[in-house]
């Protein structure tokens, strides 16, 4: 029986393929995309403000409010700026670190360095954010105070390992001989970096940026802890669903980060970054 099944599978590549694909596609294609679609539909509904029950009649009202409200534009742009700043800071900090790890450290040291970078991921996100609150407080070690800058700093810290790891993996795959060859051909350090290392490591960089960008874009907790009086798009979503029980409007607001990420993914898809996460 088993033998016959094996032979059957061996001969029918299409059957093998559909068996392999069925479960992941059912889960992500049907269940997850379905959930997103259901959320999108909800964005066209409204709620009975008193009883909190959904009113299932089509309306553009949520999107009208979203588009006409100047405050939402400001918040969306601010969130975009924060996500971009976090990504840039993480890139600048992570790249040299990942390069040193991948190309300068001995294999044995590499193993320990990866552990060193991974370890903070296990200390709770909230606890780390609070540690920054303590550091930034007026009488704290740094004493820089709270606000948008503090939010960017804290988010950069929280997501740094997510940038280091893909870049490290990308650089590690890059053969040393390639760099030596560039050197032998007379390219100096900077030129080798610009013409050889960067183009080859770019997909890995983009992969890291997907993490830092999306994690920053969806955050609403860090900004509450160190953000002073500022708010981001995640807070608007959270406040509308948590405080006002207005799922339709929250869903409408949530389409903004979704759109931003979809545009971003479409833009980077060709780089092969999606396989480097």
């Amino acid at each position: 029986m088993r033998r016959r099944l094996a032979t059957f599978l061996h001969r029918h590549a299409r059957v093998r393929l559909s068996l392999l694909l069925s479960a992941p596609l059912a889960w992500l294609g049907l269940a997850y995309l379905g959930a997103l679609a259901a959320l999108l539909v909800t964005a066209f509904w409204s709620t009975d403000t008193f009883t909190g029950n959904l009113i299932r009649t089509f309306t553009w009202a949520n999107f009208e409010d979203l588009v006409t409200g100047e405050v939402y534009r400001t918040i969306a742009l601010r969130s975009l700026g924060v996500a971009a700043a976090v990504t840039l800071i993480d890139l600048v900090v992570a790249f040299p670190m990942a390069f040193a790890m991948a190309k300068l450290a001995s294999p044995r040291a590499q193993r320990w360095l990866v552990i060193a970078v991974l370890t903070p991921l296990w200390a709770s996100y909230l606890v780390k954010a609070y540690a920054w609150r303590v550091l930034l407080s007026a009488d704290g070690l740094l004493g820089w105070g709270y606000g948008l800058g503090a939010t960017i700093l804290t988010l950069s810290y929280l997501w740094l390992p997510y940038m280091i790891l893909p870049i490290y993996a990308g650089l590690e795959r890059l053969p040393n001989s390639l760099l030596d060859a560039a050197g032998d051909l007379g390219a100096r350090g900077w030129r080798t970096f610009r013409t050889v290392v960067w183009p080859l490591a770019f997909p890995a960089v983009v992969a890291g940026s997907i993490f830092t960008f999306s994690l920053s874009l969806g955050d609403y907790i860090t900004v509450k802890i160190v953000g002073g009086r500022s708010q981001l798009i995640g807070n608007v979503v959270y406040d509308n669903i948590g405080a006002a029980n207005n799922l339709p409007f929250a869903a409408a607001v949530a389409t903004v980060p979704v759109l931003i990420m979809l545009v971003y993914l479409a833009a980077v898809r060709r780089t092969g970054a999606l396989e480097n996460l």
Binding site: T49, F50, V71, D239, A244, N246, F249
Partner: peptide
């Protein structure tokens, strides 16, 4: 003004 409007206003107040 109902609570949904209070919530939107709060978003606007915080800017």
């Amino acid at each position: 003004k109902d609570y949904a409007e209070w919530t939107r206003a709060w978003t606007e107040i915080k800017g």
